[in-house]
Design a protein around this nucleic acid. Structure first.
Lengths: 209, 209, 209, 209
DNA sequence: GATGAATGAGGATTCATTCAT
DNA sequence: GATGAATGAATCCTCATTCAT
């Protein structure tokens, strides 16, 4: 009945290099397992085994099994926002379409790197009870997109920017993830990027000429 | 020790009315539970209890726990395709936009009816290993959309219709589901329908005038 | 951090005879183990093993490990109060001293029957946090003694009956328990009964002649 | 796998002042924790943390976790016997009742100082297997009481002094400890002292006039 | 002397599934 | 056909203790 407490923080801030290595080993092991198994089969002892440490050690660094996933999620979130920043900054000469394609392309790159993780992130996100959703991952992601749209100053046809950010996030994420997992025949990576760029741009931009 | 494989068929095709009632009670109970719990907490004994039957009886009608979900999925799939048919048939006078909006609207209706089920359908769909995907739900759904597009003879700007059906399905489904679960402030049902209709239409149609 | 919820009620009220037998087997097994091990080594799997059932079965009847102890405690409490009733009722001709000796004697009998259980009951009672003590075993026991004193209408020299009941309960219980566990040389059962009877009587009664 | 046997001796007799300070820090930390947690939650790492040392250091001074409790017990035992000595020596003019009350009062003082420790001492004392009881705490305490009675030359109505010492020790200790943990309404410290003094005196003394 | 990272055995609990009644 | 008691493998997590630095 008692709900497991998620924690954002590792038990001990890994200060020493050995610790750091152990934490990384655990996170990497988890990612590797997630490519083959779903979260519920990603057991702590399996993670520990793959990481080459004991369960005890795992629990020295993570409050509980969930905390490992949280850490991974945080890392991915940071990668994505950093990426958005970079595109924003470097986006001098190119057209809007090129910038958009770049974002989509690089985002897909993030997904391709660890498909299993992203699958589980979606699955577990869907699992969360409404009450816990307040600071959930996708809300933060949507805020980030919202901010990005504002800063990028896109001449949009949308009036409800909250709704737009929401729809874009869900659409792009779901498409990329399913593509990754299903690898549907006849749709290769570049096609997907093109379709999504077009989807987003035509939805968003006042009129593309 | 070996995990039982999913089965599409109920143990016994329910022929008699009492059987039919029992099967329905089980399916309905499952739906009701899924609105509050995730699939892994939807235990067989809980289902049996809510359905007012014994576990033994449950296993008389379903090979295993998974088979219940399969049955539910099948039912939803049929509802959705039937709905598409109806729109196609009845779609005489209205504009494309109105037809599209109607589809989106009625689809959302299906989701609203049993949010928990759809959440779990997505989650469990994502869980499935690639090998099992062949007859997976979304592949069938995408085929249906593909067929619908062909039959409806939409004057599209898309060249890769497979990709288009894929992107549309994923986008609409993910948006609807997340909307249902998060009920994001500032986006009510009609807004969502409008946004999704616009997203799909502008993505799909050659030029809307 | 979350405190385990003690439960007074078995998961399923054992209605059928097979169930009843299973529950009894579990309780008896627990008692037998408690004579040799302390509570923390009285593991669920050990209990199940000794009872000749599976762990699963054990959990069918008891919410958790604690609930088994609660059930046992309840049973002992009832035995003790029943015994007090009997002495009260049957206590016609005999002197006060004889009645008192009878109570002490029969109480010791209860302890002798399952020393391990009583040891653990004391130990675990001491473990309980103040907040949980409200309905704790000894408070109930003390109330029972208080009531007994009132009903028996003992001509007492005590003015604070709450204090008297408290002191008597703690003294008698601790002495009996330690005697049982230590079996101190030179103090056999009848001696103990005599000493405790005298302790209580001289403490309690106005003047014994 | 084999459980380490208890040891009465610290690993190193603390000779230097720094060592002494460390040992004290560990003992004090333990006492502080015991006021809030039971012995099984009084983990070595928690003790070390509260004491401001590392676990490694803790094990430099104590063979194992049990040894810490042993040391604490020893310290309390010495305090109690010292106290008895003092009362014996200083007991010139006062009446027997006053001397007795003084003993009870000062003993209660010891309990009040570290209730958690005394609770655990009782609990763990009860835990010990009969075989280990030979040199157990309460046997020593009872001997001390026995000796005290002999030396104090109380004109007692008791014939079995072993039994008397036993009963008195158990009664007083249990009453004090439970009083401390339960703080029962309507029984404050002075009341308890009075009741226990009376209990013991009337039990012990030939006739009080 | 001190540190604290690593160990791993051990224990409570859950739940899909079976089968005797 | 229905029942529900029984099963037991599987999983998360804790903590005393060690030992390389």
């Amino acid at each position: 009945m008692a709900k497991k407490r998620r924690t954002k923080t590792a038990r001990k801030p890994p200060q020493q290099s050995r610790s750091r290595a152990t934490v990384d080993a655990i996170l990497d092991a988890t990612i590797r397992i997630l490519d083959k198994e779903n979260w519920s089969k990603t057991t702590t002892s399996r993670i520990a085994q793959v990481a080459g440490v004991s369960v005890g050690t795992l629990y020295q660094y993570f409050e509980n099994r969930e905390a490992i996933l949280d850490a991974l999620q945080e890392r991915e979130f940071e990668r994505a926002t950093t990426m958005l920043q970079e595109v924003l900054v470097s986006g001098g000469p190119g057209s809007d379409r090129e910038a958009a394609r770049s974002v989509v392309e690089r985002l897909l790159g993030l997904y391709v790197e660890s498909p299993g993780l992203h699958r589980v992130l979606v699955v577990e996100g869907l699992r969360v009870t409404p009450a816990d959703r307040v600071q959930a991952f996708d809300l933060r992601a949507i805020s980030a997109i919202r901010a990005f749209l504002a800063v990028a100053d896109v001449p949009t046809r949308r009036t409800n920017l909250d709704a737009a950010a929401f729809v874009i996030f869900q659409s792009v994420r779901a498409s990329m993830l399913s593509w990754l997992l299903e690898r549907p025949a006849g749709i290769d990576g570049s096609v997907l990027v093109e379709e999504l760029t077009d989807l987003v741009l035509r939805y968003l931009v006042a009129d593309e000429r």
